[in-house]
Amino acid sequence: MKVKRVPAGAAAFLARRLARLLVAVLVVVTISFAMVHLTPGDPIRTALGPTAPEELVAARRAALGLDQPLLTQYAAYIRGLLTGDLGHSFVNGQSVAEVVATRLPGTVQLAALSLGLVLLLAVPTGLLVAVLTRDGRRRGLELGYTAVTSFFHAIPEYLLAVGLVFLFAVTWPVFPVAGITGPSSYVLPVLSLAIVPLAVLTRIARAESLRALGADYVRTARGKRLSPRLIYFRHVLPNTLTAVLTLGGTMVTGLIVSSVLVEKVFNWPGLGSVIVQSIELQDYGLVQGITLVYAVVVLVANLIVDVLLGLLDRRTTLREEAA
C-alpha cells in the first residue's frame, strides 16, 4: 500500500479534531445552561435561602436576566461567553470570570507540576525495569515492582492525600498541610496528585518496553549485533513512546479532575476548592461557570494531546485516514 506524504492529510486531521472540539464545547455549554434552567425549583431562592425576602429574590433574578424567555436567555448566555462573561454568582453577584482568574493559576500549577513529574519519571523507570526483568530475569524485582505499582494503582488520589497528610503532617510534621506558604507546601499536593498516575504509567511503560523487547524488529537489531545501548534507546524507546503518551494523554483529564479532590484535602487556593464550596452553598451561577471552565480545559487538553500524538506518530493518523 502506497501512502502519499501528507501536509493535506495533517490539515484535514487538525480540522476534524477542531470541529469535534467545537461540537463538544457546544454540548457542554448547552448542558451547563440547561443545568441551571431545567433544575427543579427556583435556583435563586435556593441560593439565597428560604428566609430571603421575595423582593430581593426577584431583583436578583431580574439582574441575572432569569425572568426572560429561555431562548433569549440562551442567546444572551452564548453572547456573554463569547465576550468572556462567564456569568455571576447567585449568592453575592461576584463575576465568575474574576473568580476563575484568581483561582485557575493555583490549579494549573498543581496539575502541570504533577504531570511534569509523571512524564519525567514514568518512561525511564518503565524501560529500566523492563530491561532488568526481560526474559523472566529477576523475578523478585518484578514481583516487588508489580506489588508496589498495583497498590498505588488501587488507591484514589484523595486517599493518598489523606494518608500523606497523616504521615507527613500529623505523625511527622515535615510539610505544611494547608494553603501555599512556600515551596514546601507544593510537595504533598503534587505527590498526592502524581504518584497514582506515575504508578499506572510506569506499569504501562514497562509492559510496552517488554513488548518492544520481544518484537521482531528488536531481534533484527540483535541480529545486527548492535550494542544494548543502541538497541534500548534507538529501537525500543521510540516504539514505546506512542502508547505511553497516548495513555498519558488520557491521564491529563484524570489529573485535572483529581486536583479538585486534592485541593479540598490541602485547602489549596485553586478552582477545585471554589467549586466544592459553591456546590455546598448551591450557588449554581458559580458552579455553572466553573464546570464550564473545567470542561473546556479538559477538552482542550485532550485536543492538544491528540494533535501532539498525531504529529509524533504519523502512522496512527494515516491509519485513521485510511479507515
Binding site: A34, I256, T291, V298
Partner: peptide
C-alpha cells in the same frame, strides 16, 4: 462519535452536572 465525545468527559465533572440537576 457520540461515545467518543462522551468518553472525553471526566467522571467527576459529569457527576457534578448530574448532582446539580437532580440535587
Amino acid at each position: 462519535a457520540v461515545i467518543d465525545v462522551w468518553l472525553a468527559f471526566p467522571v467527576l465533572l459529569l457527576a457534578m452536572f448530574v448532582a446539580i440537576m437532580l440535587g
